[in-house]
Amino acid sequence: MEVPSFLQPQVKQQSQSVYVHSIFQHSKLLGASKTIWWPNTDPRTVVLFIPGNPGLSEFYIPFLSALYQQSSHTCILAQSHLGHTEEATAFVYDLTAQVFAAIEAFDALTQTYPAMKFIVIGHSVGSWIALQVLKARPSEVHSLFLLFPTITNILDTPNGRSFFRAFRPPFPYIISRSSLLLHPFYPRILPVLFPEWPRAQLDVLLRLLRSPSCIEACLSMAHEEMNSIRKLDINLLKTHKHRIHMHFAETDGWVGDNKDLILRSFKADIGSVKVVHGDHGIPHAFCINHSQELADQCARWMSE
């Protein structure tokens, strides 16, 4: 299975696999990121997917594979966050670096596949990063799909407040190093704590928990999100309202009352933004057990 020249295949792929695990080499200051590539020999649409936090593209394999199967003439690149996987060496992994990494991946796609439609999909904080890609490359992003978007006042949400109190620095470092003591117990603990999780998703979480550096990167980035993502960029949303699609949960501890704030910011223009509210009771962490429903929704948006 071929990959574009800007990707390095990571491992030998199984013949029945529709995707390729790969590495994207960024500029020297950033290092590399883990990626997954869904190819197409006759693409007309190119999708860049940006995950939430933890930013592990493997969590989204069921979702993106389902979307890929429904979307003909489409290729997809899922990019893990810098520092969140051991497969790729990152030199920095703060929020600004994640934005630059996403822009570099988007630029590689546009240079390799000119004259295509480019869709950027972001989940949770990945939605905020996706908006920064749109801001940097406004003439090249055709559509933006924001899934459970945490794009403003994360610290003022129920989950944000709880997280901020529990994981103040230096706790990310302490917790990441303390995780080493639990390594022998993770295979038994995780199925008990998350009995509804599929085995493949538990394996992704297990790989994360066995890497102190990745745990620290995820927790540090989350703390930075609380401090940095505060004011809603209303002008950006209103300027590009015809390109934006949003999916909200009925109840979301990471979004809270910000959903109303986001929707009110459009005022009379809300009809220009395609919004879905609480469809099928899908939770914020949709990639665990509700991948098909979100793939169906994104496929409907793409068909429009």
Rank of each mutant, 00 (worst) to 15 (best):
T96A: 13
A66N: 05
K274T: 04
D257M: 15
P4D: 05
S71A: 15
T150C: 14
W197M: 14
A249E: 12
T157N: 09
T41K: 02
A78P: 00
S127T: 05
F49I: 06
S15Y: 05
A108H: 02
K231R: 10
P170S: 13
I270G: 10
H223K: 14
R210L: 15
S65P: 04
T110E: 07
L77P: 00
T152P: 05
R177E: 13
F145S: 06
N53L: 04
M1V: 14
A108P: 00
P187A: 10
F145N: 03
Q292V: 02
R165A: 08
E58V: 08
G122C: 14
L48Q: 09
K231C: 08
F171H: 05
T110K: 01
D260A: 11
L180H: 04
K274G: 09
N258D: 15
L182V: 05
I103R: 00
S22I: 11
V275Y: 06
P172S: 07
N53Y: 04
L109E: 04
E140G: 01
C214V: 05
Q14N: 11
I36S: 03
V99M: 08
S139I: 03
Q8T: 15
T41C: 03
S211G: 02
E58C: 09
H81I: 00
G160Y: 00
A101E: 03
D296Y: 07
Q70H: 09
H247R: 11
P283K: 13
D42T: 10
A102I: 06
G83K: 06
S71M: 11
F59Q: 09
L219G: 02
M226D: 01
Q69Y: 11
P169Y: 07
P9S: 15
G31D: 11
C287H: 15
L182F: 10
F59W: 08
G256K: 07
S143A: 09
H240F: 13
I76T: 03
S57N: 07
H280P: 03
H280C: 12
Y68V: 05
A108V: 05
L208T: 08
L181K: 00
G278Y: 07
H26G: 03
L29Y: 04
L263T: 07
H290R: 09
Y68D: 02
H142G: 06
T41M: 01
K238P: 03
Q111C: 08
S265H: 01
I23G: 06
P195Q: 09
I119N: 01
Q10K: 11
F248G: 12
I270Y: 10
G52N: 12
Y186W: 08
A136S: 12
G253W: 04
H247Y: 12
D296C: 10
H247P: 06
H223N: 12
S178G: 14
S272K: 10
C218K: 00
A166V: 08
